[in-house]
């Protein structure tokens, strides 16, 4: 589905990614874990087209989409749920969802879009209750749900999720993660960036550990959960506990 080869990204003169290679298979959930500033979000933003200075290859089903503008990439079936949700705050929930399906409106598929809206309401029933409310007035968890729902409205083949649990109460985070598992059953391919490494590895099949713009460890989630270095650095266990 997605194959990233030797990707290097820059913010001005600062190099944020130092040759990242990773792949995401169809129907897979893959997670990127790592500390703040390691470059996880940069990977997602580069794939979505928001970081314009980069080199390497980003292959989506064999086609190189690197260097395309974000508004073109979403037409190729890649949707990013950005960090901090980035909703259209002064607009209603329904307006946000309608704009999420912006790329599909031109084909005159009004009925399909209605159906998809019912589908995301089914996924997040609370959004249906709040459909006429302004996005900016929703709670943090509801905003995150709306951000995911908006991305789903473009019918992505690949969903990029950037820190969906950020700033949310543990209970709400769990709800978001349950939805991610449900999406997997609907065969949406997901690349997930998460601070909460344990939760991420529990839903994902595979994971990559990113440090200072490079992949340092990779493998199936079960292996990463047992990897001593990963346990110590990202799962909150000290060496003592690991050795006991």
């Amino acid at each position: 589905m997605l194959k990233v080869q030797n990707l290097k990204s820059y913010y001005g003169r600062l190099q944020a990614l130092r040759g990242i290679s990773l792949h995401v298979g169809k129907g897979e959930i893959v997670t990127l874990i790592g500390a703040n500033g390691a470059g996880k979000s940069t990977i997602l933003n580069t794939v979505a087209g928001l970081v314009s200075q980069n080199e390497g290859k980003i292959l989506l089903e064999g086609k190189d989409i690197r260097g395309l503008a974000p508004e073109r990439i979403v037409r190729h079936g890649v949707a990013l749920v950005p960090e901090g949700r980035q909703l259209f705050a002064p607009m209603t929930v329904v307006d946000n969802l309608e704009l999420g399906a912006y790329v599909r409106h031109k084909n005159g598929s009004k009925i399909e879009i209605r159906q998809d809206m019912e589908m995301v309401f089914d996924l997040f029933p609370v959004l249906k209750e709040r459909r006429k409310q302004l996005a900016g007035t929703l709670s943090g968890g509801e905003q995150q749900m709306l951000a995911i729902a908006r991305a789903l409205m473009s019918r992505p083949r690949l969903l990029l999720l950037d820190e969906p649990s950020m700033g949310l109460a543990p209970k709400i985070s769990e709800e978001i993660f349950r939805t991610i598992v449900r999406l997997k059953k609907q065969e949406v391919t997901i690349l997930l960036v998460e601070q909460n490494a344990r939760m991420a590895l529990e839903v994902a099949g595979r994971g990559y550990v990113i440090e200072t713009g490079q992949v340092v460890v990779q493998g199936p989630s079960a292996d990463l959960l047992r990897n001593h270095e990963v346990e110590r650095a990202y799962l909150g266990k000290t060496y003592e506990k690991v050795w006991e």
Partner: peptide
């Protein structure tokens, strides 16, 4: 309101 988010939805 939010040019980046607008671009992300196409």
């Amino acid at each position: 309101h939010n040019p980046d988010a607008a671009r992300l939805v196409g």
